[in-house]
């Protein structure tokens, strides 16, 4: 759980760096070239398979643990309280499931459309000698829709919450604990979780408002 979790966190960073190119005001050129590279490079292909396996493993492990733990707990208390532990840590499975749904929506929106449909325009740029799919166009269209933006924001809030517990929990599970440094790790974990989700959220928000102002 902790290893797959940390792996997925590392993906989040890479994915964010790539996607922040959406914010470059060049009509999507950099992003489209980057996306083309990502979808054609053989190494990336392998890594992406690793990623899908990672997500799957993380989810399966999560499900197994939840089922195991339900069995271990047996019956529940009549009075449920969050006074002895935060809501997040007790609801990781709920948040995780929500994130998984969000991922499906997200992949269906972009990955599926890019890979398996012909709905995207091909585009050429003067300084490169091959055609790329205009994914930027697709993204920008999607984020023009306020409801999609809302779905993304909610999904990212869930991600932030999931990470706030997940980040430091992974360190504990791996036994990476030190009386001096653990408090710092915990703070970094929270900053990271909120920060990365905010940066992600910036993309749909920026594009939505950018579009609004263009009209």
């Amino acid at each position: 759980m902790s290893l797959t979790g940390l792996f997925l966190i590392s993906f989040l960073i890479v994915h964010l760096l790539g996607n922040l190119q959406l914010l470059i005001p060049d009509g999507g050129k950099a992003f489209n070239i980057y996306a083309h590279f990502m979808s054609t490079n053989i190494v990336i292909k392998f890594i992406s398979i690793g990623l899908y396996v990672g997500i799957l493993l993380h989810a399966i492990q999560g499900i197994i643990i939840v089922l195991d733990n339900r069995k271990a707990k047996g019956s529940k208390y009549a009075v449920n309280t969050y006074e002895n532990g935060n809501w997040l840590s007790k609801n990781m499975a709920l948040l995780g499931t929500f994130i998984l749904f969000f991922l499906c929506v997200h992949m269906g929106d972009f990955w599926y459309k890019v890979k398996f449909t012909d709905t995207l325009d091909l585009i050429t740029y003067p300084d490169i000698d091959y055609q790329v799919k205009d994914i930027y166009q697709r993204v920008s269209m999607a984020f023009g829709n306020v409801w999609i933006v809302v779905i993304y924001i909610v999904g990212l809030i869930a991600l932030a919450l999931h990470l706030i517990h997940g980040f430091q929990s992974a360190f504990t599970t791996l036994g990476l604990q030190h009386p001096k440094y653990t408090p710092a790790i915990n703070v970094i974990g929270i900053l990271f979780s909120v920060g990365i989700s905010l940066l992600y959220a910036l993309i749909p928000l920026y594009m939505y408002f950018a579009k609004l102002s263009n009209y």
């Binding site: 759980m1 643990i65 195991d68 733990n69 069995k71 271990a72 707990k73 006074e83 002895n84 532990g85 935060n86 840590s89 007790k90 990781m92 517990h165 430091q168 929990s169 360190f171 504990t172 599970t173 036994g175 990476l176 604990q177 009386p179 653990t182």
Partner: peptide, 25 residues
């Protein structure tokens, strides 16, 4: 048949001897 730890931390909060979760790590 005890469950798996998911680092909730309620154990330490309720421990009457306030044993720290650092032990778990």
């Amino acid at each position: 048949g005890f469950g798996k730890c998911s680092n909730v931390g309620a154990c330490s909060v309720e421990c009457p001897k306030e044993i720290s979760v650092e032990n778990i790590a």
